[in-house]
Write a protein that binds this DNA or RNA. Structure first.
Lengths: 244, 244
DNA sequence: CCCCCAGTTTAAAGATTTTGTAAAGGTGAG
DNA sequence: CTCACCTTTACAAAATCTTTAAACTGGGGG
């Protein structure tokens, strides 16, 4: 079941309903998130401020300090993304929560699936905010260029008809160019799920991608297999001659 | 966290909700912006025209003069970047805002983080666009032209009978021409609400819009489906021949 | 030098996801 | 009430993903 040494996303869930916590932890766990629960306001606040978490999911109704108060105090010191939950009935709270610096806000009655979707959106936004404009819209590797805005990869002057996963795979490899990416990392980053030893789907995608790149596993121009470790996009040392 | 040694960026926030102002000021303050608040239309207008601010964040619902009116009068004399906020439940009228010269437009339900991101984008743009006209009133894509003032889209010399949402959808796509817009972004920008996985309304609007544009999903002249990502208005490379 | 084994490649089949669109349902303006 | 419009629902079609399994590879031990 385990997810690894690789960067795992850690979440703090603050809610006094332990059953709910278990349920959510279990659900999010299946998608590779490590969920830790706190069951009171003060406890949640303390843990939030430990800065160990990538995001906090915060119920409003809490013993000790209510969710708004916890949020306010978190925001005094930290920018950790916070997603607030409300029990039924509280209409206007949404605005109040957002005004106070919550990153999103959703009813506790939402499906876990919705929670997951919003959570991802929040994490994505916060990841982007960190590097802000730093993200280049285009990555180039020899004759290969990848346009992130248009989601289009070109080899020479020919557009490659990649499927969504193939494109993502290429992007992830390209961003880690010169470093080996394990299958686990790849599947985590691309598909948001767990890797298990018999999972060959990454291999299959690599194979398909290579075919489209006209890349030969035995003497790769782009994707090199690193036995027992994973795959890596070659980092052409200065002076490498590519020919299309 | 701070914004640096360079001269501090000064922002004017015009909103009658003082609590909201405090919270935003506090949040943006953490990123090194100096935020000054005005709580009525006339006050906001007067301060905007003092030319002391690098940008203005303007709520629409205001006592005295509403946001649109304030914007109009600012634009009579000044090109200070203006970012408009719609309050909850208000009839969103992004187009009116943009057409009047707002630089960006976002729902008040957005998170502070989002506000910050857009603000940075606006500031960046305004720094760059010293000389060129802010918001073009007309966007042209091959035989398609979109007039924001008249709220009219023409295909060749024929006016398209678009519904309000279809028109906005087209505008949003056109403004992002060449970049993929996710369904989430689209629904956020057009309808001011959250996207959830089961929400197909964007697809339906796209379908309707395509029908009116006589655009075929399989080989789109205008709107391309980017599987698992969203939609994108084609950015015709220079020299592309359109025929109506 | 050959065999074996863990690890890899790949085609193919089956399962799943995503999309297009018609039609039904809902809502608000007039 | 009617009309215009937006959203939801439903379902089929298309595209894509994962699994499976058979063929392959490279290196170490014999």
């Amino acid at each position: 079941m385990q997810q690894s040494e690789t960067a795992q996303i850690r979440l703090l869930l603050v809610d006094d309903d332990t059953k709910f916590c278990r349920l959510i932890a279990e659900y999010l766990g299946r998608f590779g998130y490590a969920v830790v629960a706190a069951h009171s306001g003060p406890e949640g606040l303390k843990m939030s401020l430990s800065e160990q978490f990538h995001a906090v999911i915060l119920d409003i109704m809490l013993p000790g300090l209510d969710g708004f108060e916890v949020l306010r105090r978190i925001r005094e010191q930290s920018e950790t993304p916070v997603l607030m939950l409300t029990s039924l009935g509280e209409e206007t709270d949404r605005i109040v929560g957002l005004e106070m610096g919550a990153d999103d806000y959703l009813p506790k009655t939402s499906s876990p699936r919705e929670l997951l979707a919003r959570l991802r959106a929040v994490l994505r936004r916060s990841a982007r905010a960190v590097c802000d404009d730093a993200a280049p819209a285009e990555i180039t590797v020899g004759p290969l260029s990848i346009n992130l805005n248009a989601r289009l990869a070109m080899l020479g002057d020919e557009a490659l008809p990649l499927t969504p996963v193939e494109f993502e795979l290429l992007v992830v490899l390209a961003q880690a160019r010169g470093r080996v990416k394990s299958r686990e990392e790849l599947i985590n980053e691309i598909r948001d799920r767990h890797y298990d030893v018999y999972d060959r789907s990454i291999d299959v995608h690599v194979s398909a991608l290579r075919k489209k790149l006209r890349d030969d596993p035995k003497s790769p121009r782009f994707i090199r297999t690193v036995r027992a470790a994973g795959y890596m996009l070659v980092y052409p040392p200065a002076g490498t001659a590519y020919e299309s």
